[in-house]
């Protein structure tokens, strides 16, 4: 296995500014609780994961509900959310939502205010890598956090490389820590 903060894809070497590690779930909780206007962007990759009979999409739905985080779904991810009676705040392609996040005058999906924390999960690794790079450079007002099981160096905060089991446990812990 790679080191905790190695890029998952070996060649995707980051620049001088690298993501801080979310070494324990409390950090993610603190970032979510501290955020004024968080948003979560969920790609189709999340649909692949299941641990001990539990789909990780269910965990994300719980996280969104408890953290009161609007969810933007990309690609075909929407259907699975709707099948679970959870209506995403929007369906937008990943590059489209990322582009809007770089616009400081964008007032969000509801037209009220800009977002200050963007949580990414489930996009193809290299696509997420480049999108996070775009945000790192051009969205200074937005912190980014990834909840994937691999390290994303261009985020502000990223999970370390971990096994699916460890990752699922961390996601569950984040949800539990948020309380009711």
């Amino acid at each position: 296995m790679p080191q905790l903060s190695d890029s998952w894809q070996t060649g995707e070497i980051p620049g001088p500014k690298k993501a801080s590690l979310i070494v324990k779930p409390d950090i993610a909780d603190a970032l979510i609780l501290r955020a004024r206007r968080p948003i979560m962007i969920v790609g189709h990759g999340i649909l692949e994961y299941e641990v001990e009979g539990c789909k990780l999409i269910d965990c994300l739905i719980e996280l969104a509900k408890k953290g009161k985080i609007p969810v933007i779904v990309t690609a075909s991810t929407s259907k699975e959310f709707l099948a679970r009676n959870f209506a995403p705040a929007a369906i937008l392609p990943a590059v489209d939502i990322a582009n809007r996040l770089t616009d400081p005058s964008w007032k969000g999906l509801d037209g009220k205010d800009s977002y200050d924390l963007a949580i990414f999960v489930g996009l193809p690794y290299s696509m997420e890598w480049t999108i996070l790079s775009g945000l790192k450079h051009f969205a200074p007002g937005v912190k980014t956090m990834t909840l994937d099981c691999v390290y994303q160096p261009n985020a502000s905060w990223s999970f370390p490389n971990s096994t699916i089991k460890e990752w699922a446990a961390s996601l569950r812990a984040i949800v539990e820590n948020l309380g009711d």
Binding site: P14, G15, P16, K17, V95, A98, N99, T102, T130, I131, S133, G134, H137, F138
Partner: peptide
């Protein structure tokens, strides 16, 4: 253009 830097340098 929405830039997605592939390298920071």
């Amino acid at each position: 253009p929405f830039y997605l830097p592939f390298c920071d340098l």
